[in-house]
Design a protein around this nucleic acid. Structure first.
Lengths: 170, 170
DNA sequence: GTTTTATGTCAGCCATGTTGACCAATAATC
DNA sequence: GATTATTGGTCAACATGGCTGACATAAAAC
């Protein structure tokens, strides 16, 4: 029966494969964020705090507007979590040396400790998945995820990567 | 400089690679859901409605408790969106023929039309990413995502897949 | 000196998750 | 047949994290 309608079958498989991707994205993202969410809940924080901590840790001295460009949320939304993080001594703001309007953002030791803890649980999950799947699969995984990005995000991501490579190979 | 500390470099690359995965997941999931979110907003719906519609469309006649097991949210949360979807004539509930306590869930034509539209935009994004990345990459992508799942989710997902294959190869 | 920019703040709204309490119908079991 | 368990719903209250709109301040840029 399967080979009687090869075209129909091919189309069926195609849609089935696309749906499989859609579903896997949903389940994987949920499970991937689950553990970190638990840790954050202990500290009366949420995912929004996590994202801010993560990208500040990754880009010490980042300005508010740069962080806004990465997260793509409103400044009001960001302001809320940022104020909370400053109050709880996870983040410090320093006035920009060139442009005194800017608030450069840095993690405190406390912030860094939390960032490390969160990245560790997520990293462990990735390390396991990467190990099980193998190097070739990891490359494919990254390629597909990049392909899912909006063109603008794609540019941002590769720009971030370039900046880090440049910084590393000083 | 790079080859003076091979071990340090290897560790550095490892963490860098894990962080790349973490970041790609965040960006890709956001962009992947963005288009659908826009369509849903037009209809005064959100992602929760989408998820319900999606899995009901995928599993016609699914019971509330089965849907709860897939989504892993509380019945109160689900009940809210489900009532809305019934009110807006996207979903109908039929009393279970065997167990009359159950409400079997089905999409109406209206619900099906919306599901198709939403799955089309997400499917197009995946089709593009899959096409650009190639078949091998797609396999790797799926393998890594499966590896990111909680063991319980992994069992669920493969059980769903088995059920569909069984239904198809009647 | 005026305009633009970077940032913050207040107020309110919406969607979506949570907990806890309680209820009704029905199925299953002793 | 009475009791217990299951399926599903409902009401209330709360937290998180998006959003818009309006307004303020400081500093840079022109």
């Amino acid at each position: 029966m399967a080979d009687i309608k090869p075209i129909g079958k091919a189309l069926f498989l195609r849609e089935e494969e696309l749906r499989r991707g859609i579903e896997l994205m949903f389940f994987a993202y949920r499970d991937f964020t689950g553990e970190a969410d638990s840790i954050l809940a202990e500290q009366n924080m949420g995912r929004a705090h996590h994202r801010a901590i993560y990208f500040i840790g990754r880009n010490p001295g980042i300005t508010v507007s740069e962080l806004l460009a990465i997260l793509k949320i409103t400044k009001q939304s960001l302001s809320r979590v940022l104020s909370a993080l400053v109050d709880s001594h996870h983040v410090v703001q320093k006035t920009g040396p060139d442009d005194r309007r800017q608030r450069l953002l840095y993690l405190t030791d406390r912030g860094n400790a939390l960032e490390t803890r969160l990245t560790e649980v997520q990293g462990r999950r990735f390390a396991k998945a990467y190990r099980d799947a193998g190097m070739t699969a990891v490359e494919g995984f990254q390629r597909v995820l990049e392909g899912l990005l909006d063109p603008e995000t794609q540019r941002q991501v590769s720009a971030l990567g370039d900046a880090r490579r440049a910084q590393r190979d000083d």
